[in-house]
Amino acid sequence: MKPRTGAAVTLAGCGKTFADGTRALAPLDLSVAAGETLVLLGPSGCGKTTLLRIIAGLESPDAGGRVLFDGADVTALPIEKRNVGMVFQSYALFPNMNVRENVAYGLRVRGVGKAERSRLADEVLEMMRIDALAERRITQLSGGQRQRVALARALAVRPKAILLDEPMAALDAALREHLRGEIDALLRRLSITAVYVTHDQAEALALGDRIVVMREGEIAQVGTPREVYERPADAFVASFVGTTNRLEGTVRGGRFACAAGTMALDAPDMPKAALLFRPEAARLVLDPPAGLVLKVEQVQFQGARQKVTLCTPDSVRVVVETPPDLEIAPGMLMGLALDPNRFSLV
C-alpha cells in the first residue's frame, strides 16, 4: 500500500455536558497536524474518550464547539459521513461476517464491487500479516488477532484520520508491548493522522508524537513524550506519568531550600515551591559537600542499575536510579545532584 497522509484535525471550543448535567469536558481547543499521532492520556473519567467520540462524530460538542477536518467544518456531519477509521475498545467486529467481510464492509457500503473489495481487503490483511485469517469467523480469533482485524477494518476505507479508543485494554501485558511496536511502525509508515486514547503511560510515551494529558475534563499538559516526562506541567502530570520525586521547600535568592539542605537554581523567589524530578534525573554523590543531603534507606540491586530509596530529615522519601558501580549501603549519607534540565519547579 502506498503511504498516505491524513487530514489535520482541529477542535475549537469543544466542551461536552451530558443530558443529566455532568460535565465530561470543559470547552477546549486542540489541533492534530496531518500525519501526526496524538495520544490522549489520563485516568478513567478524565474525558479522553468523550473527546475522541467528538472527533469521530459519535458525540456532538456543546453549542459553540466546532470540529474541523483540513479546515472544513464537519461538526454537523454524523460519523458515517466523516470518513474516519475507528478502533473500539471492544473491537465491535461483526460476528455475522468473517474476517475478510469485516475488513471489506466499509468498501461494501461505499458501493465497491464484490471482487474489487475482496482484493482491497486482502491487500490490507496482507499488510497487517493476517491474510491467513481471511476466512475465519470472528469467534475463532484470539484477542491480539481481533485487535489486528479491527485495525485493518478501520484502515481499509483509507480514512482521513484513525481514532483508537484504548485498543489494547483487553490484551495481556506481553502482547500489549509487542503490538505497541507494531502499531507504532504502521502509523509511521502510513503517516496517517491518528488519535489514540489510553490510560497507560508507557503506551502513550512509546506511541505519541505528542501527548495530551487530561484530568477531570480539562487538558493538564500538551507536549512531546520527552517534554511531558521530563518537564511535567504540574504535580498531577508528574505523578500520572512515571515515578516522580517531590521535595517541598522555598526559593530565595537563587537557592532552593528544604529540610535536606539547599541547592542553587535559576528561579525567582517563591515562598512555597516543590521540586519535581525523575529517579534517573538525579545522581548520588559520596562524601557530600554542602547541598542536598539524604540518608539511604534501602538499596535494590537490579543488574544494570540499582534503585536507591533515600529519606530526608523530615521523612520524605526519594527514589533515585543510578549505575551499579557505586557501592551504597543503608544508613549512609549521600549528596543528591540534579541534572540542570531534568527537573521542574512548581
Binding site: A56, L58, P78, I79, E80, K81, N83, V84, G85, M86, F88, S90, Y91, A92, L93, F94, Y105, G106, V109, R110, R153, A154, V157
Partner: peptide
Amino acid sequence: ALEEGAASLGA
C-alpha cells in the same frame, strides 16, 4: 458497539 462500528465505516 456493533452499530457504532458499522457507522464509523460509513454505513
